[in-house]
Design a protein around this nucleic acid. Sequence first.
DNA 1: GTCTATACACCGATAGAC
DNA 2: GTCTATCGGTGTATAGAC
Lengths: 189, 189
Amino acid sequence: MDKKQHLLDTALKLFVEFGFHGTPTAKIAKEAGLSSGTLFYFFSTKDELVTSLYVDIKGKMTAAIMDDIEGETSIKKLIEGYFKTPLFWALNNPIEFSFTVQFSNSPYLNQVAAKEIDLHIAPFLTILKRGVKEGTLKNIDPQLIFALVRGHTFSIHQYLAENPADLEKQSKIIAESFLMLWEMIAVHS
Amino acid sequence: MDKKQHLLDTALKLFVEFGFHGTPTAKIAKEAGLSSGTLFYFFSTKDELVTSLYVDIKGKMTAAIMDDIEGETSIKKLIEGYFKTPLFWALNNPIEFSFTVQFSNSPYLNQVAAKEIDLHIAPFLTILKRGVKEGTLKNIDPQLIFALVRGHTFSIHQYLAENPADLEKQSKIIAESFLMLWEMIAVHS
DNA sequence: GTCTATACACCGATAGAC
DNA sequence: GTCTATCGGTGTATAGAC
């Protein structure tokens, strides 16, 4: 068994429930069945544990998106992947997703290098720019379109989290909400 | 001068910059030119200071919305108020708005009674229900429409915060983005 | 109401044995 | 690699004088 991973998993669960501040390292170690010393053997500081958890999760989410859009070239399909994949991923990994939301809206975000964040944003922005250039997307600032996709994702996630439903219904909501998003940002011919 | 209000103002500024955890009560008191003892004379715990700050700000935002939509009856105008007012309010009160975003995505939110939160949501939900019933809004769950409006607001705020522009341009973006939102949720005849 | 001084709990991190 | 034990620092909150 991988103890480092076990510590990450335990920390994740506790952070989401009690917050970063509300979760002492001693509690993480104890809950994981390990000692404080071991925790600090794997992570030199608490901040490193928190931020590496974020980088970890963000990487997994991005990987899922990349996997989904692999080989795609159509703007619509690409944006669909960037929108739907995180949502389906969130259905299967609610705690991980909650963590990223909490982290992204906390001052911890500043501790993650801008380059690390840009790494996930840049490719999507390139796609959006192409979409605007080609006339597939409305002629508005790609940064704004990016914000709209993000916000829409955020909306649907919030809704799904607060209104439990079976997978079929959830899938339907995600699919329909993508069409709403697409109508909003695409040029209709 | 109202020292309690001064403490609230100082705390607000520091919380947004350093986070709740990163801001000791002693620092708040010192920055406000007061002593720790005085702080705890006005607020019996730090948590009370944090949550009362939230309730305070939320109340002001809601008041601004209510003031804006006073006398309105048309669904479109009402939703426009609920969408635009917070955004314009955020332009003039960026720190306050940042605080609410940070607070809403932290475990502190659980410390605010559900009733307090519902107080701000319920009236808007009533309007949305009426809009769906009347056929002005698309026939989807009002809760979902609510989430969409929220997310859209979140998007535009994020965009405006990251892309500084003059007031005229900002106003234009807010106005145009409302139309995008309206097209998304309204029935087109 | 406001201050100074301080109690005292807690937490992050280290040292050193095994 | 993992543990136990513990240090030093920090932070909330209180006591009591003014």
